[in-house]
Amino acid sequence: MYAAIALVAGIVVGLFLHPTVPDWIAPYLPIAVIAALDAVFGGLRARLDRIFDAKVFVVSFVANVLVAALIVFLGDQLGVGSQLSTAVVVVLGIRIFGNVAAIRRHIFKA
């Protein structure tokens, strides 16, 4: 419950506070969004599996964002940045899809 309120609060703050995004962060923002969605759905599924752990949630989210940004950064330096960000999006996208499917099985039992 508090988690949902905090999520909405974060989104509202992000939307209405107009934080200026520095140019060097802009390429990593989509990756961060995918990692954030992965963390949210992963946490939701763990909660439904009754194995949720707040520390794991936060640490995995932060680490995933950093690692994804690092991979894309390295790819940019090597000239394959867009391909590597595609790879990150595909892997995280598959995880999101699998987690949402698990959540669906929990909720609808189907």
């Binding site: 988690a3 949902a4 905090a6 999520l7 909405v8 609060a9 974060g10 989104i11 509202v12 703050v13 992000g14 923002l29 961060a32 969004v33 954030a36 963390a39 949210v40 707040a54 949630f57 936060v58 989210f61 932060v62 964002v65």
Partner: peptide, 8 residues
């Protein structure tokens, strides 16, 4: 953590 996610 959730606040950070929402911010992102």
């Amino acid at each position: 953590g959730v606040l950070a996610v929402g911010l992102v």
